[in-house]
Design a protein around this nucleic acid. Structure first.
Length: 923
RNA sequence: GCCCGGAUGGCGGAACUGGUAGACGCGUCAGACUCAAAAUCUGGUAUUCGCAAGGAUGUGCAGGUUCGAUUCCUGUUCCGGGCACCA
């Protein structure tokens, strides 16, 4: 009886579907476990072999946990809103809803083909109104909340209004704002003014912000969609533009997002990326008195991480966009300042980044006064200081900061040395170890310690305070696009109000016009009837970014069909956090931070009893393509083999990996591949045409794409799954080399032969197993369990191979042994396991079997083949009883022939014996 | 420039807490079965000296700690990823 893998796999996939074996209940006496994949954006290209890697890993883990007695939630859905579908609509006239639906169907077919154990009854699609109703609802929760800095939590806006009524603008725990009012004044403000003030505190708020405007795409991009000043999609230039945009006040959560990292199991690099993104820096804000011609501005505030260097300040630099610039510029400098400000305005982000070496700037004619020694410090403006970070102004210490140093040198500003020999006059030295000189009350202190002393003095003198800054900005949340969630907001006479919960969802209006409205507004602005739906009332023409739907989908899976709430509280409490989340590291920043933010806000508002969404995160590596090259002799149709190419003037061309066996080109197939090559000639080496190789990303244009459907057709799903895992560690990126798959396929055939022989038929029997067979089994199962627990699936697969090799050598065909092996194999190769399980006469699915417990009595060893080292070099091994003590071991070792040979009659200096490990004779 | 991660046979990789480097698989070589091939099975396969027994070398490179280092420390090269005038 042959292993007919395709028949078996199709049969079981059908049965699992009919019997709904992957359907998961929301109430169970079993402990819960939540295994989640990052849901895919359903692109038109379909899956290649790199995509399923993480899904296979999570599938193995989900099945494993189920066998171990857990109620496992393992859902899948689609991140279905997004720009590509809209671009496609503009180019091909197909509505995004239609192309998205088609793509989802293709994805589903491919996913089903790999036999995943998703509970498809829980599928979510972010573009469905029944789903985005709740995305809009959560947005309104953010709109209706503010962040209380004392409780460090989101609270309701009604709470804030009460505080304004009793405290005025002087509410403790409130962030700074431009508004200042008494309780009485608050009550006297008209509605529009009150709403404008409240907007300064809402977690989802409207503000004029500098956005990344991409003219070519006609839209605003998030920071992570801009790479080197060009749009991520299309590579178009991106410039700064002020627009009235929705933003999420994620900066208020910076500290909690940072602290939360300590409690979750993400990789160190992932945590580091998030820490860098949040960019916490501790320092002080210091006020400097200002003396200027106009005398309007009395003082300026700077942020510095190095208040210990305050006596080394030789000039101040203010961002050219800073408001104070107008008020301090002297008449003599006016023209020069105006020109410079004008120059900076014309400079796009791209230019500012591209030119790091060029130093520009301009003196304002005003001076600041050092609060400690009264020195007059010139105030400059320069583009290297950014208005949006810190206070938009810095104190420049050229002896300790490279940029400040270059600036001072360039403009001939005298440099004060406060660090003695640490400063050589050639370059700045950012040390914290120097002993301060020329530094007033800080003289003689080590800089590292002087930081705190300086802050203490600054605070005591009332000229500043300790301050923490974050590099992270609030998240821009408006997109000038059609294919996204509309904002559930109504503007009444220009004042934004939340829509009533009962009116949700605000459905995306039907349209066939996806081009931007031209004035910087998105396609929805073209739908006048929808935008201006009532007198003096209008809607927002923007939609939310794709991050919105993805920021909470893992909550929806717990109760996906609920139309009363985003999910039932009982379901949320039962499933709780995602226990394991598997996905690519490219979502390190945006998706994970926004998800963490939304969960924290929902937690603060009492909807969730946890405040981190993902307990453990695993980033699967990329599978790279293994490209092949042929070398065409220039100007001819002759192709030279790789080893001889240096003798010719030849150009490398990518060749389809599917017509290359290893590195040997199938020259006949090559001639048929493209008409151009029909009469190609070959210069061979040893009668073969050898191709060049390169590891690159999988791409159609490199002809190195492998479609999982083809692999599955040829070798079967179980082989494909195990091979993807066998390639290497889950988190490492690794090349796809089809050659190795034969080994895994052979392994499954060998496993099959333990049960059925091609000639003899059934070979399994119901005999009692002996100790050697039990030992082989349990030794293997123990390792497999350990490997699966730590997501080391590559070593797990190899342990299965070792185990099957051993059982074959032992000629063990005994049901009681093989049955346990099948249960353990189920997570890795579910189809073959299910088939053999049923052929052994079992009813029901193997997924409902109990994971085999390890019988440790078969694993106890009485002796060990000890490695014996002489001076740390392994020379021989001796079998010694494991309970032998040092004197006994020494005696055995010293009488050994090999040891005696090496000792040459001398007595050893000492003998190191580590019980159960090794012996080392030192001479 | 700064911050993280990595480098092991011809190839993918293993060695989990400092204790027999190269498990497992691919490839390859030899053999068995076969008219032949496929499939399957058996054995060898880090490099090097040697008929062999056995020895020397060996985890990017240079040092160090240790009885003993792929593993720890210092420096360095290369590769991958993140951030980038962030005060």
């Amino acid at each position: 009886m042959e292993y007919k893998f395709r028949d078996i796999e199709k049969k079981w996939q059908q049965q699992w579907k009919e019997k709904k074996v992957y359907s998961v209940p929301n109430d169970s006496p079993k402990p819960k476990y939540y295994v989640l994949d990052m849901f895919p954006y359903p692109s038109g290209a379909g899956l290649h072999v790199g995509h399923p890697l993480g899904y296979i890993a999570s599938d193995i883990y989900a099945r494993y946990k189920r066998l171990k007695g857990f109620n496992v939630l393992h859902p899948m859905g689609y991140d279905a809103f997004g720009l590509p579908a809209e671009q496609y609509a503009i180019e091909h006239g197909i509505h995004p809803a239609v192309s998205t639906e088609n793509n989802i169907n293709t994805f589903r077919k491919q996913l089903d083909n790999i036999g995943f154990c998703f509970d498809w009854d829980r599928e979510v699609r972010t573009c469905e109104p029944s789903y985005y109703k709740w995305t809009q609802w959560i947005f309104l929760q953010l709109f209706d909340s503010w962040f209380n800095r004392i409780t460090q939590k989101a609270e309701r806006i009604t709470q804030l209004i009460k505080l304004f009524e009793t405290h005025g603008s002087d509410v403790p725990g409130i962030q700074r704002s431009a508004f200042s009012f008494t309780p009485a004044e608050w009550k006297s403000f008209d509605e529009a003014t009150q709403q404008e003030i409240l907007m300064q505190y809402r977690l989802a708020y409207l503000a004029y912000t500098d956005v990344n405007w991409c003219e070519a795409l006609g839209t605003v991009l998030a920071n992570d969609e801009v790479i080197n000043g060009l749009s991520y999609r299309g590579g178009f230039p991106v410039v700064k533009k002020k627009m009235r945009q929705w933003s999420l006040r994620i900066t208020e959560y910076a500290e909690r997002l940072l602290k939360g990292l300590d409690e979750i199991d993400f990789s160190d690099s992932m945590k580091e990326i998030q820490r860098n993104w949040i960019g916490k820096s501790v320092g002080a804000e210091i006020d400097f008195a200002v003396s200027s011609e106009q005398d309007v501005i009395k003082s300026m505030r700077v942020f510095t991480t190095r208040p210990d260097t305050i006596f080394g300040v030789d000039f101040m630099v203010v961002a050219p966009e800073h408001e104070m610039v107008k008020s301090i510029t002297s008449s003599a400098q006016q023209k020069e300042v105006d020109d410079y400000v004008q120059y900076v305005l014309t400079r796009s982000e791209v230019d500012r980044m591209a030119e790091v070496k060029k130093i520009t700037g301009c003196f304002t004619g005003a001076y600041a006064v050092n609060p400690f020694d009264g020195r007059k410090i010139p105030i400059w403006i320069s583009e290297y200081v950014l208005a949006g970070y810190g206070t938009g102004a810095i104190m420049a210490v050229p002896c300790g900061d490279e940029r400040d140093f270059k600036f001072a040198k360039h403009f001939n500003i005298p440099i004060t040395n406060i660090i003695g020999e640490y400063y050589n006059g050639e370059e700045a030295n950012a040390t914290k170890d120097a002993i301060l000189q020329n530094s007033g009350f800080l003289n003689g202190m080590v800089m590292r310690e002087a930081i705190d002393s300086a802050i203490a003095k600054i605070e005591a003198d009332g000229i500043g305070k300790r301050q923490v800054n974050y590099k992270m900005r609030d998240a821009g949340w408006s997109r000038q696009r059609y294919w996204g969630e509309p904002f559930p907001i109504v503007y009444k006479n220009g004042v934004p109000y939340a829509m009533d919960e009962k009116e949700l969802p605000l459905v995306l209006p039907p349209s066939n016009d996806f081009k931007p409205a031209g004035n910087g507004e998105g396609p929805l602005a073209n739908l006048k009837d929808w935008i201006f739906f009532a007198a003096n009332e209008n809607r927002d023409s923007n939609t939310m970014p794709t991050h919105a739907g993805a920021a909470w989908y893992f909550l929806r899976y717990t109760d996906p069909h609920n139309d009363k709430a985003f999910a039932d509280k009982k379901a949320l409490d039962y499933w709780g956090q995602v226990d394991v989340y598997i996905g690519g590291s490219e979502h390190a920043v945006a998706h994970l931070l926004y998800s963490r933010l939304w969960v924290k806000v929902l937690h603060d508002l009492g909807y969730l009893n946890f405040d981190e969404p993902f307990k453990k995160l695993i980033n699967q590596g990329k599978i790279t393509g293994d490209s092949r090259f042929v070398y065409r002799v220039r100007g001819t149709n002759k192709f030279v083999s790789h080893g001889l190419k240096s003798q010719y003037d030849a150009d490398a061309l990518h060749v389809d990996v599917n017509i290359v066996n290893g590195t040997e080109l199938d020259t006949a197939a090559f001639k048929k591949w493209k008409p151009d090559f029909a009469d190609a000639e070959f210069i061979l080496e040893d009668g073969k045409y050898i191709c060049g190789t390169a590891i690159e990303k999988m791409s159609k244009s490199y002809f190195n794409v492998i479609n999982p459907d083809d692999v599955v057709e040829k070798y079967g799903v179980d082989t494909f799954r195990m091979y993807e895992m066998f390639l290497g560690p889950l988190e490492a990126s690794k090349p796809w080399d089809i050659k190795g798959i034969e080994g895994v396929h052979r392994f499954l055939k060998k496993l099959w032969r333990l049960f059925y022989d091609d000639l003899k038929g059934k070979v399994w029997n119901e005999d009692k197993a002996n100790d050697a067979e039990w030992k082989a089994l349990y030794k293997g199962l123990k390792k497999i369990e350990e490997d699966t627990d730590r997501f080391s699936f590559n070593t797990g697969v190899s342990t299965f191979m070792i185990l099957v090799n051993e059982l074959s050598d032992l000629k063990c065909h005994k049901k009681e042994v093989l049955e346990k092996l099948l249960i353990a194999l189920t997570p890795y190769a579910p189809h073959i396991a299910e088939e053999l399980w049923s052929l052994l006469g079992n009813s029901g699915t193997v997924l409902d079997a109990a994971y085999p417990a390890i019988e440790t009595k078969y694993l106890i060893e009485s002796s060990k083949e000890y490695p014996i080292s002489i001076n740390g070099k392994m020379r021989t091994t001796i079998n010694i009883a494991l309970d032998a003590a040092q004197p006994e071991v020494e005696q055995i070792v010293l009488t050994n022939d090999v040891v005696q040979k090496w000792l040459e009659g001398k007595a050893p200096k000492k003998i190191i014996f580590v019980k159960g490990k090794m012996v080392n004779v030192v001479m």
